[in-house]
């Protein structure tokens, strides 16, 4: 009888243990950093170089001291980032968006389009688009948003947490606005348009 009770208790503990949920929180800081790098790349901005910069700086100068330091090739740091944004799919989406940005930039600048609150591009002032560009802008915005959605999903997926997509999106939403050029438009939390 005692044995049975003990077994029952043990089973109960097992069950309890099985019920313990391990929460993995969204790594907000790392995600933000990753988003900044991606957005800077797409918008064609120079991202402040990290660890690598110092080393390459030395190598570029040719001289005795440099060569000696040069011997100490920096070993790679933190090879496995905490937040992975480095998959073929993400790189492909990023390259496509970077390419498309060449065409979109003029329309950000004219105020025709802006960054929406949902980390998408939105038409802000259709009248600012000349007739000959109207279809083009519509197509660009449609394609850009499709790629943006795919990007947020891919990033969440690459980190093994598809359910992080909303957090990834809101991180990007913030970063797009932060990195927007002067005079570009964005939607604030209430949905009204503001200018950087």
């Amino acid at each position: 009888m005692k044995l049975i009770r003990a077994t029952g208790l043990f089973a109960g503990l097992m069950l309890l243990a099985a019920c313990v949920t391990i929460n993995i929180y969204f790594p907000a800081a790392q995600a933000e950093e990753a988003a900044e790098q991606i957005v800077d790349d797409i918008l064609g901005k120079q991202s402040p170089a990290k660890d690598k910069g110092a080393a390459t700086g030395v190598i570029r100068t040719h001289g005795l001291a440099a060569r000696i330091v040069d011997f100490l090739i920096p070993a790679a740091h933190a090879a496995q980032p905490d937040f992975n944004v480095n998959t073929p799919e993400i790189r492909k989406l990023q390259a496509r968006m970077k390419q498309r940005h060449q065409s979109l930039r003029a329309f950000y600048e004219s105020g025709a389009i802006g960054f929406g609150g949902d980390a998408q591009v939105k038409m802000r002032d259709a009248s600012a688009v000349p007739l000959r560009d109207k279809n083009k802008v519509k197509g660009l915005v449609r394609d850009e948003n499709a790629d943006r959605n795919a990007l947020y999903k891919a990033i969440a997926g690459a980190n093994g947490h598809p359910e992080w997509e909303p957090e990834v999106r809101s991180t990007f939403s913030r970063v797009w606005v932060e990195r927007a050029g002067r005079g570009w438009w964005y939607q604030d939390t209430s949905g009204s348009w503001k200018q950087r």
Partner: peptide
């Protein structure tokens, strides 16, 4: 000695070498 090297740095070095940077 280094088992893990930053690829970008390695490429920069190779470029430097092939461009004839004089080693001392």
């Amino acid at each position: 000695f280094n088992r893990r090297t930053d690829w970008g740095v390695l490429v920069d070095k190779l470029v430097d070498i092939s461009e004839g940077a004089t080693p001392v």
